[in-house]
């Protein structure tokens, strides 16, 4: 028993190390004073972060990533939340077909989405624009909002809405003052998922974006095809930290949602 147990622990821990090690390697490298890709570091400094923040390319990419991320998050969260409430409110005919359509952006391989959207958006002037990219990212992010808000709503007590309406609240007031406060953690978690999706997206942006829509993933892709500069690792480290923040935010929100439940 103990030999099996030991082997099991060793393998499990080794896999856990395999999962985090690549991320843990790039963080110290990004603080290197030199330009080598290996240890030991010649010295420690902020050289590559200074390079990042003094490069027009990287700053534009950062700015694009943030603005496109925020705009597509707003669109995806608004539309996704409404749709999730609609699907929860009543059984509409063809609900499962509607759900299948809404989840489509999740199922279609990214390369097909990228090629198809580029092909369709170019004639209407949406290729190589911020608008086109925001639409594309909102589409890719919306299923996460629908699913997350839907999961929160499944815990929502329907009698609360009836109580609100019998107290004279209109549907909008009932939504704003009764439903929204309860499902807010789910909505925010959906928004965080949406933002992370846009921030992470690297295939559609490669096809649909022009030179002035360069996002961080696209800029990193271009850099990796070239000689690898440690500026890429500074960008990567900042993205890892950002992912960590987003992940902790979702965990915090779901813990709060959990605590609210009776």
């Amino acid at each position: 028993m103990s030999a099996i147990r030991l082997a099991w622990w060793v393998v499990g821990l080794a896999v856990a190390v395999f999962l985090v090690a690549p991320l843990l390697v790039i963080v110290p490298l990004s603080f290197s004073d030199g330009s080598f890709l290996h240890f030991p570091l010649p010295g420690i400094g902020m050289r590559w972060y200074r390079a990042f923040f003094s490069s027009d390319f990287w700053l534009t990419a950062l700015w694009n990533s943030l603005t496109i991320g925020i705009a597509s998050t707003i669109v995806a969260t608004a539309l996704g939340t409404l749709a999730a409430i609609g699907l929860w409110l009543a059984v509409i005919p063809g609900a499962s077909a509607i759900m299948a359509v809404l989840l489509l952006p999740l199922v279609v391989p990214a390369i097909i989405t990228a090629v198809a959207l580029t092909f369709a958006y170019a004639p209407v002037g949406l290729a190589s624009t911020h608008g086109g990219l925001i639409i594309a990212h909102a589409l890719l992010a919306s299923p996460f909002v629908v699913v997350t808000v839907g999961a929160t709503l499944s815990q929502f007590d329907r009698t609360l809405l009836r109580a609100a309406s019998s107290c004279g609240a209109g549907p909008v007031t009932a939504f704003r003052r009764v439903m929204l406060p309860v499902i807010l953690p789910g909505v925010v978690a959906g928004a965080v998922f949406a933002f992370a999706t846009s921030l992470d997206e690297s295939v559609v942006v490669l096809f649909l974006a022009g030179p002035s829509q360069r996002t961080l993933p696209r800029q990193m892709f271009a850099g990796l095809k070239d000689t690898i500069e440690l500026t890429i690792l500074a960008a990567a480290t900042m993205l890892v930290v950002l992912s960590l923040v987003l992940m902790l935010l979702v965990r915090f929100l779901s813990a709060r949602g959990e605590a609210r439940r009776p």
Binding site: V17, L23, V240, L244
Partner: peptide, 20 residues
């Protein structure tokens, strides 16, 4: 250890392997 890479950008993880 599972969730951190799960949340990290695909390109960041690909970049990490290129450097490694």
């Amino acid at each position: 250890a599972v969730l951190l890479p799960f949340w990290t950008s695909l390109l960041v993880r690909t970049a990490a392997w290129m450097v490694l």
